[in-house]
Write a protein that binds this DNA or RNA. Sequence first.
DNA 1: TATTATTATTACTACATTTAGAAAATATTG
DNA 2: CAATATTTTCTAAATGTAGTAATAATAATA
Lengths: 113, 113
Amino acid sequence: MKKYQLGEFEEIVLLATAILHRSAYGVSIKDEIETQLGREVSFGALHTALLRLEKKGYVRSSSGEATEERAGRPRKYYDITAMGKKAIAYARESREKMWKAIPKVVLKLSRDF
Amino acid sequence: MKKYQLGEFEEIVLLATAILHRSAYGVSIKDEIETQLGREVSFGALHTALLRLEKKGYVRSSSGEATEERAGRPRKYYDITAMGKKAIAYARESREKMWKAIPKVVLKLSRDF
DNA sequence: TATTATTATTACTACATTTAGAAAATATTG
DNA sequence: CAATATTTTCTAAATGTAGTAATAATAATA
């Protein structure tokens, strides 16, 4: 049993990186999560999550091109790896499996749901 | 926006509690997760997760009946609350939303996936 | 050169998870 | 009754993950 285990935030960061394809870097990942989920993301949290994900081999990073004509420190682009894709797929599948096992009565009977 | 946030393990415990309906307690929850996901669960980890979930209002607990004829300490049964159901539903929906936003090329082109 | 825009990084704090094992409650056996 | 076995909850310490606040690096432009 491989250990594809991801933290809650790590998984979201990985999903955002996949969505952004070749244009994922700090600011764009932050924006993507914030607009998709309406949830505030801090650079610090994002940075440490990306560090961990890279260490685990779920993303790889590369420094931005010198040709980019814009101010500021060079971007650091992130790409999801094959292992990263496995990890998000595994997380999704295992939870969907559990969802399907929930008795209908549990989801139906509560009026307040 | 912080309302519904669950840890990775917390979510799984909550799902198992929902699956087991009225018969969720330490041992049965542990077994459910282990058979569903093939992942080892320790009682200590489970206990602290349940404590947190109860504190957050996602489960409620009740002591087992005195009529149960069996050895051992009385069981402590857990039930998912309406808020708990909202939390797992929210977690599911937000991730599904992100999955749908992943460009097909990202999932298709990698042979090793 | 100084200022400003853009981005990455660090240091620190708080929360979540895991591990290893102790302790409680009950039944059964000698 | 006392001792032991069974079933379960609970504790404490260590590690892993996430969040906050401030700082540093790089480059364009005034």
